[in-house]
Computed example of a mutant assay.
Amino acid sequence: MFVKLVPGALALLLMPSAWSHPHSFIDMQATLVHKDDQITGLKMHWVMDEITSADLLYDAGDAKPDSVVWKKLAAEVMANVLGQHYFSEFWHQGKAVKFDNLPPEYHLSKQGHKAVLDFILPLGEPQPLAGQRYIFSTFDPSYFVDMYYDSDKSLHIPAELAQRCTFTLKTPKPDSSLQAYALSLDKADAPPEDMDLGRQFAQKVTLTCQ
């Protein structure tokens, strides 16, 4: 069972209420992926904190990066991410844009003592760029994992679109009572589902193109 391999952040997919909130952290980066004048997806780069990474890297042992061991671990991690709809939402003109069920590529590696997941988050259908605005967020609804962009510099536009498109990052500022509530949750607690706690802490990224 994957939960035995990685009892940290990614195990929330099987046991979303097992730990405190937030218990783990994922530092994210995103790059716009396009073809012609359409956005086809986002290239995601997720760096897990050292504690979350420890068991995953332990199971990888001394295996080489392109070994069967790493590929198997990558498949297990990606399957869990897919099980949560990539932890992401993508909006255009107030309507949700669907994702493709399978990423065209994904890769698991290590960066020092941290595990790194790279993958393409594919849109179900390419979307026009010219004169459009999109909003997307990536978050764990239970706020078990704090998934965050460190700054605007974590969001990347390909050079050929740099004069036309921009990313804007908005980080919410929940009131002190909500922050205190989130921090008060211990290993035996879970926020009510209808509270959607993670969404209230979720950053929003706006993509605007001329």
Results as ranks from 00 to 15, higher is better:
residue 99 F to W: 14
residue 100 D to P: 00
residue 101 N to F: 02
residue 101 N to L: 10
residue 102 L to H: 06
residue 102 L to D: 09
residue 102 L to R: 06
residue 102 L to A: 13
residue 103 P to E: 14
residue 104 P to K: 08
residue 105 E to A: 13
residue 105 E to K: 07
residue 106 Y to F: 15
residue 106 Y to S: 04
residue 106 Y to M: 04
residue 107 H to S: 15
residue 107 H to G: 02
residue 107 H to M: 08
residue 108 L to Q: 05
residue 108 L to G: 02
residue 109 S to T: 06
residue 109 S to A: 06
residue 110 K to S: 08
residue 110 K to R: 14
residue 110 K to G: 12
residue 111 Q to F: 00
residue 111 Q to I: 00
residue 111 Q to S: 11
residue 113 H to C: 04
residue 114 K to C: 13
residue 114 K to T: 09
residue 114 K to Q: 15
residue 114 K to R: 07
residue 115 A to P: 01
residue 116 V to G: 11
residue 117 L to V: 04
residue 117 L to Y: 01
residue 118 D to C: 03
residue 119 F to Q: 01
residue 120 I to K: 07
residue 120 I to Q: 10
residue 120 I to Y: 10
residue 120 I to F: 05
residue 121 L to V: 05
residue 121 L to Q: 04
residue 121 L to C: 10
residue 121 L to F: 03
residue 121 L to A: 04
residue 123 L to R: 07
residue 123 L to C: 10
residue 124 G to W: 00
residue 124 G to Q: 12
residue 125 E to C: 04
residue 125 E to F: 11
residue 126 P to C: 15
residue 129 L to K: 04
residue 129 L to C: 11
residue 129 L to Q: 03
residue 130 A to M: 03
residue 132 Q to R: 12
residue 133 R to N: 14
residue 133 R to Y: 00
residue 135 I to M: 06
residue 135 I to N: 10
residue 136 F to S: 11
residue 137 S to R: 12
residue 138 T to S: 07
residue 138 T to I: 15
residue 138 T to Q: 06
residue 138 T to N: 07
residue 138 T to D: 02
residue 139 F to A: 11
residue 139 F to S: 12
residue 139 F to W: 11
residue 139 F to T: 08
residue 139 F to K: 08
residue 140 D to R: 00
residue 140 D to I: 08
residue 141 P to G: 12
residue 141 P to S: 15
residue 143 Y to Q: 09
residue 143 Y to L: 07
residue 144 F to V: 08
residue 145 V to S: 10
residue 145 V to L: 07
residue 145 V to N: 00
residue 146 D to F: 04
residue 146 D to I: 00
residue 147 M to V: 15
residue 147 M to I: 15
residue 147 M to Y: 05
residue 148 Y to H: 15
residue 150 D to P: 01
residue 150 D to E: 04
residue 150 D to Q: 10
residue 151 S to V: 07
residue 152 D to K: 04
residue 153 K to R: 09
residue 153 K to A: 14
residue 153 K to D: 12
residue 154 S to N: 09
residue 154 S to G: 06
residue 156 H to W: 03
residue 156 H to M: 15
residue 158 P to N: 15
residue 159 A to H: 07
residue 159 A to L: 02
residue 159 A to E: 10
residue 159 A to V: 01
residue 160 E to C: 03
residue 160 E to W: 00
residue 161 L to K: 11
residue 161 L to S: 09
residue 162 A to S: 13
residue 163 Q to V: 07
residue 164 R to Q: 14
residue 164 R to L: 00
residue 165 C to N: 11
residue 165 C to V: 09
residue 166 T to E: 05
residue 167 F to P: 02
residue 167 F to N: 03
residue 167 F to R: 06
residue 168 T to R: 08
residue 168 T to E: 08
residue 169 L to S: 09
residue 169 L to G: 10
residue 170 K to C: 06
residue 170 K to E: 09
residue 170 K to L: 09
residue 171 T to Y: 05
residue 171 T to M: 05
residue 172 P to Y: 06
residue 173 K to L: 03
residue 173 K to V: 11
residue 173 K to R: 09
residue 174 P to G: 14
residue 174 P to S: 05
residue 175 D to G: 12
residue 175 D to A: 05
residue 175 D to K: 05
residue 176 S to A: 13
residue 176 S to Q: 10
residue 177 S to D: 14
residue 177 S to Y: 01
residue 177 S to R: 06
residue 179 Q to R: 14
residue 179 Q to C: 11
residue 179 Q to F: 01
residue 181 Y to C: 09
residue 181 Y to A: 13
residue 182 A to K: 04
residue 182 A to I: 07
residue 182 A to G: 06
residue 183 L to K: 13
residue 183 L to S: 15
residue 184 S to M: 02
